[in-house]
Amino acid sequence: MPDERLDGYAEALLAVAAAEGRSTLLEDELFRIGEALRHNEELLAALSDSRFPIERRQSVVEDLLGDKASAVTTALVSMVVGTGHGGHLPEIVDAMVARGAVKRDRVLAKVRSAIELTDDQKARLAQAIKSSTGTDVEIRVIIDESVLGGLVTEIGDDVIDGSVRHRQSQLRENFG
């Protein structure tokens, strides 16, 4: 998918979220949906499979999201799938959250955690990262049970891995 088109869709999603006045919630829901699709290749392939009618693919999206996301979020995802770009939804969402963070003069920080973080934890983590990088960051949490415990923070190409999984890997390497 060309960058111009991808940026266009990202900008459109941001505009709708802003118009709805729930940018934070909608961006967060879209970010979680994008991460879920990124790790579910079969579903991602089905959403972009032209052998299925667009209406069928959109009904799958609506069935899957249902009450797990807001109606606006479901409508936005269904819109992207309806345009035939469902297979690029993770990239579109990445571009959207990155552009949204930039608009707020912040840097996107993807945080993987086995549990949901509280607002206080997010704020303290953002403050700690700001102290490290000198830049305000916008925390986006990805629930990933494979980290077992702790957090893994990705800011651009930098990774701060404080997960139990990482400790186990170090332990395994020390044994080796």
């Binding site: 086995a114 700690a128 415990g149 702790g150 957090l151 404080g162 139990v164």
Partner: peptide, 23 residues
């Protein structure tokens, strides 16, 4: 051992410890 002891409180404690460590 870790999984058996990783309850919600421990998880939160690990997150807090991570934040404190970064800070």
């Amino acid at each position: 051992v870790i999984k058996s002891n990783l309850d919600i409180d421990t998880q939160r404690a690990l997150v807090d410890a991570y934040i404190d460590e970064v800070a």
